[in-house]
């Protein structure tokens, strides 16, 4: 199809491979660091072959603080997805009937809300929460995450749900179902892949979120991204723990990311961007 000289092809390979290594390198580095003992970690020139140790992983897993943070992250991320879904599913169900200008405007509004930096909301929530006694609670963080998870889910769901023919609703009505039944019994099963994909995307957001978690949580509800900064504390940086914790925190989201790779991309483009 396209004409490419041998030189061009070779250059493309070279650039592609160098770029790939630049992406892979840092991830591998932190993985290796997590497996090195303190002596090997500071060896210069850096060691690529060494006797791996699991001591940092064991130390992390046995650390009650880290275990608490892990369960907090699971609770808060799952809670955020569930709450956001409860709003996003009916909303998307309604947006799919919109056409033209109305649809465009609702999509752009949703996109805009998603893109506003969290720092705008941080101070007022801190002040309000300290007065309402919501600091250091799971629900406090879950409510804030709704601002971001709800638009994320709608935005990802729309292309999937848009493919479901609207005639289904009319025929459902003829069969005597009400709108709510049509949503739950007929259409929800059809868009389940989209629900799963958008749920995972929202989960990844909540799992990774740092700014609000840093300010809103204290001892009780501290999450994984925050706990990891505690290892940068008093007795210098505990690189072993930091790298092992990094690996543990990123593994689930990387696995999720691979699983829904297709949706992360199309979710943002399909149906939304048209030149």
């Amino acid at each position: 199809m396209k004409r490419r000289s041998k030189f061009t092809t070779a250059s493309l390979y070279v650039v592609g491979i160098i770029y790939g290594l630049a992406i892979l390198g840092p991830i591998l580095w932190i993985l290796l660091l997590a497996l090195k003992n303190a002596l090997d970690a500071f060896a210069y020139p850096p060691l690529f072959i060494f006797e791996p140790t699991l001591e940092h992983f064991i130390a992390i897993v046995q650390d009650p603080e880290f275990r608490l943070a892990f369960s907090n992250s699971v609770i808060i991320s799952t809670g955020s997805v569930v709450l956001a879904m409860a709003f996003a599913i009916p909303a998307t169900f309604a947006i799919t009937i919109m056409r033209g200008r109305a649809r465009r405007n609702s999509l752009l509004t949703i996109l805009l809300i998603r893109m506003v930096p969290g720092m705008i909301y941080l101070l007022p929530y801190f002040v309000i929460y300290s007065r309402l006694d919501l600091l250091d609670t799971h629900i406090g963080l879950i409510i804030i995450y709704l601002i971001f998870c709800l638009p994320l889910i709608v935005w990802t769901l729309i292309p999937v749900w848009g493919a479901v023919p609207l005639e289904l609703r009319e025929s459902g009505m003829i069969d005597g179902a009400n709108l709510w039944q049509i949503l739950v019994l007929i259409e929800l099963p059809l868009v389940r892949i989209g629900i799963i994909a958008s749920g995972i995307i929202a989960f990844i957001f909540a799992w990774n979120e740092f700014l609000f978690a840093l300010v809103i949580t204290r001892r009780k509800t501290v999450t994984l991204p925050v706990i990891i900064t505690h290892y940068m504390g008093y007795e210098g940086y505990e690189w072993g723990k930091i790298s092992a914790a990094s690996v543990i925190i990123m593994t689930p989201v990387v696995v999720f990311g691979f699983l829904i790779q297709r949706y992360m991309i199309t979710g943002l483009t399909a149906g939304a961007v048209k030149g």
Partner: peptide, 9 residues
Amino acid sequence: APMVIPPIV
């Protein structure tokens, strides 16, 4: 991977 890795990591 870089898209989903927590920014903190």
